[in-house]
Simulated assay, not measured.
Amino acid sequence: EMESRGQAVLRLTNRKKEDKIEKDGIKILLKRHEVFENGRQVDLTLKEYGLLKLLITHPGTVFSREEIMDQIWETGFYVETRTVDVHVRTLRQKLGEAGKYIETLRGVGYRYHEAD
C-alpha cells in the first residue's frame, strides 16, 4: 500500500508539470481551466472542476465525502456531506458518456475508474 501511495504521489507530481490531463475521452487544460469531453467543451463550476481534477489524477483511489470536502471546499467552510453527492451527480451529467468513469462506492465514497 505504501508503494502504491508513493507511485500515486510521483504521478501527481509529474502531472503538475504538464499543462493538460487526458484520459478516457476527457481532456483538462490546466492553465486554461477548460474541460473537454470527446472534443466537446464542458462548462464546469470551480467545485466541479476541482472534483474532476482530484478524481482523475488519482485513478482507483476511493475518496470519502469528507476527504473530498477537505480537498475541494475551503477550510472552515461548513458543507453538508450530501452536497458532494449533488456535485458528483451534476459533474457526471455534464461529462455525458465520460461521466460513467466516476463511480460511487455505497457507504464509502467516490473514485475514478479508468477504462479497460
Rank of each mutant, 00 (worst) to 15 (best):
E74I: 06
D85S: 13
Y101G: 07
I56Q: 03
Y112T: 08
G39F: 05
Y101M: 12
M69F: 05
Y110R: 05
G25C: 05
G60K: 05
Q7W: 02
T13C: 07
T13S: 04
N38R: 14
Q93K: 13
T45Y: 05
T104W: 13
V35T: 12
L44R: 06
L12Y: 10
W73C: 08
E48A: 04
S4D: 07
E97F: 12
T61L: 04
I56L: 11
Q93W: 06
K23W: 01
E74H: 08
I102G: 14
S4H: 03
L52K: 02
E34F: 07
V84R: 04
I72R: 04
I102A: 14
D24F: 10
W73M: 03
E1R: 05
N14P: 00
L52D: 02
R106W: 14
T104Y: 06
R92H: 04
F63M: 12
F36Q: 12
W73N: 04
T75P: 04
G76H: 12
K94T: 11
T75C: 00
G39V: 01
K94P: 12
T45Q: 11
V62Q: 07
V79K: 14
S64H: 06
G25R: 01
Q41H: 11
G6V: 04
N38L: 09
E80S: 10
K23F: 00
D70A: 14
V86P: 02
L52Q: 02
H33Q: 15
H87G: 01
Y101A: 02
E114M: 11
A115R: 14
G39C: 02
V84K: 09
Y78V: 10
K20P: 00
Y110N: 09
V79I: 15
G76T: 11
L10V: 15
